[in-house]
Simulated assay, not measured.
Amino acid sequence: MKNKHLGLSSALAAYILWGMLGVFWELLSAVPAMDTLAYRIVWSLATISIVLTVQKDWHNVWETIVSLTKNRKIGWIILSSFLISINWFIYIYMVTHHQATEASLGYYIMPLMNVAVALIFLHESLSRAKIIALILVVIGVVILTIQTGSLPLNTLLMAGSFCFYGLIKKQVQLPATISLTLETLCVAPIAVIYLLATPHVMTQNGLQVTILLILSGIITIIPLLLFAVATKNTDFITLGFIQYLNPTIQLLMAIFVLHEAFNWNKAIVFLFIWSGILVFIVSSLYNYRRLRQIKNTVKK
Score class of each variant (00 low, 15 high):
A188F: 14
A188R: 07
A188N: 13
P189R: 06
P189M: 10
I190Y: 11
I190W: 09
A191Y: 04
A191H: 05
A191W: 03
V192I: 15
V192Y: 07
I193V: 15
Y194V: 04
Y194K: 02
Y194Q: 03
Y194S: 03
Y194T: 07
Y194R: 05
Y194I: 03
L195E: 11
L195C: 15
L196G: 11
L196N: 11
L196Q: 11
A197G: 08
A197D: 10
A197P: 04
A197V: 07
T198A: 15
T198D: 13
P199A: 10
P199H: 09
P199W: 08
V201N: 12
V201W: 11
V201I: 13
M202E: 08
M202R: 04
M202Q: 10
T203L: 10
T203W: 13
Q204V: 13
Q204F: 12
G206F: 12
G206V: 14
G206S: 14
G206N: 13
L207D: 11
L207I: 14
Q208S: 14
Q208P: 04
Q208G: 09
Q208C: 08
Q208W: 13
Q208E: 14
V209R: 02
T210L: 09
I211P: 01
I211K: 05
L212T: 02
L212N: 06
L213M: 13
L213N: 02
S216D: 11
S216E: 11
G217P: 01
G217F: 05
G217A: 08
G217I: 05
G217Y: 00
G217W: 01
G217L: 00
I218D: 00
I218Y: 02
I219L: 10
T220P: 06
T220Y: 05
I221G: 00
I221L: 14
I221R: 02
I222P: 02
I222Q: 07
I222M: 08
I222H: 00
I222R: 01
I222K: 01
P223H: 04
P223L: 05
P223Y: 01
P223R: 04
P223G: 06
L224A: 12
L224E: 12
L224F: 15
L224R: 07
L225S: 03
L225E: 03
L226A: 08
L226H: 07
L226G: 00
L226Y: 02
A228M: 10
A228G: 14
V229G: 00
V229W: 00
A230G: 04
A230K: 02
A230Y: 01
A230C: 09
A230W: 07
A230L: 05
T231C: 06
T231S: 14
T231G: 04
T231F: 09
T231L: 13
K232Q: 15
K232Y: 11
K232G: 06
N233C: 03
T234A: 10
T234P: 00
D235Q: 15
D235E: 15
D235F: 12
D235G: 08
F236T: 14
F236Q: 12
I237P: 00
I237A: 01
I237G: 00
T238F: 06
T238G: 03
T238N: 05
L239M: 12
G240S: 08
F241M: 06
I242V: 13
I242H: 02
I242P: 01
Q243G: 06
Y244V: 04
